[in-house]
Amino acid sequence: MREHISMLEGLGVEAVAVRRAEQLEGLDGLVFPGGESTTIARLLTTSGIRPVLADKLDQGFPVFGTCAGLILLSSAILDGRSDQWSFAALPVEVRRNGYGRQIASFETPVEVEGLGTVPGVFIRAPKIETWGSDVTVLAVHDHGDGDHPVFVRYGPVWGCSFHPELTNDDRIHRLFVESL
């Protein structure tokens, strides 16, 4: 969360760390950070953020999810816990740890439409297995099993398998911020 906040502040955006539902009011958009999706899902429920955010997503609230954030925005989760839920705001099916466990975590250059090459840091990353025809694919990566999207957009909802916040390259965040 800290890296996302400093990246947003670097872009001249006022950023707050949302831990309670009432903090969602008055925001122009939300960055959903990485971490463990099971942990974040639980905290979204116990904090009461889940129903409020679900409503806002229904009304077109802009959200950008990275890694675990992508999992929570997706329409279906493969290889997750049997009771794992998601907001179904982004019509993609993601596989948890789809690129492998930590030992397989990797860095690779990623070619993003309109941006050029950005550094891609994939940590126990989710893999987008299927996606709706109306999802805009902004970047793909072939990890030896053909191209899979790694950065997508569906209207105001954006998702990314990797961690742009762990690098010094703020162009992906800038793209989201400029869309607001």
Binding site: S105, E107, T108, V121, H141, D142, H143, G144
Partner: peptide, 15 residues
């Protein structure tokens, strides 16, 4: 947009 295969590195300090 092209796919980028193989310049991947595993086990870097960053990951």
């Amino acid at each position: 947009m092209s796919s980028s295969h193989d310049p991947s590195t595993i086990g870097s300090a960053l990951v």
